[in-house]
Amino acid sequence: MTTVLHKQEQVTLDTFLRGIWEENPVFVMLLGMCPVLAVTNSTLNAIAMGLATLFVLVASGTLVSLLRKMIPREVRIATYIIIIATFVTMVDYTIQAISLDLYNSLGAFIQLIVVNCVILGRAEAYASRQRVGAAVVNALGMGVGFTLALLCLGTVRELLGAGTILGYPIFSPNFEPWVVMILPPGGFFVLGGWLLLFEWIKQRRERRTLQAQGATAHGS
C-alpha cells in the first residue's frame, strides 16, 4: 500500500468559516439538494434536518479521519458509506424516540442522509486526508453552513406558504397564504431565488472592485 502524503492543514478560523460562506455546500457547491428541497416546507423540519445532518457529518468525519491510515484505498468509498450508514441509523432511531410527529413529517429523508453527497464528499475530500482536529472543525463548519441554508429556505417557504414562523402567525389573519410555496414547486422557486440573490451580490461586488481599480488607475 502506498501512502499518499497530503499537506496537513493548520486549524484556523477559516477552516470553520469556509463551510458557512465561501464553500457553502448548498448555495455554492450545490450538493445534497434532495433534503434541501424536500424537507424545508417548515422551519422546524429544516432545523431538525440540519441538526441531524450536522451530527452525521461531524461523527463520520471524526471516524473517517481516525481510521484514515487503516482503510485500504480500494474499498474506501464502501467503508465510508458503511460508517455513514451506521451513524444515520443512530440518528433515525433517536429522532423516532424523541418525537414521533417530527419523524413522520421528515419521512424517509432521515434515512436518505446516507446518500447526501455533502457527507460523502467531505469524507473523501477532507476527513480522509487531515488530522482529527481539522476534520472535526471543517465538518462543523459545513454542517452549520448546511443548516443555515436549510433555515434560509425553510423560513421563507413557511412564511409565504403558511404565513407563520415555527407555527406562530406573523401576518394579519387577512393574509392569503401562497400555498404553492409549501408544495414541491415552491422549493425549486425559493432556492432559485436565493441563488439569484447571491449571484447578484457577487456580480455587484465584482463591478465595484473593477470600478475602484479603474478609478485608482485613472487617478495615478
Partner: peptide
C-alpha cells in the same frame, strides 16, 4: 439576464416543470 445564468435558471425551470 447574466445574473440568472446557470443553476438559478435550471431551478426555476424545474419549478415550472414541477408545477
Amino acid at each position: 439576464p447574466s445574473v440568472s445564468q446557470g443553476a438559478a435558471m435550471s431551478l426555476m425551470l424545474a419549478g415550472l416543470l414541477s408545477l
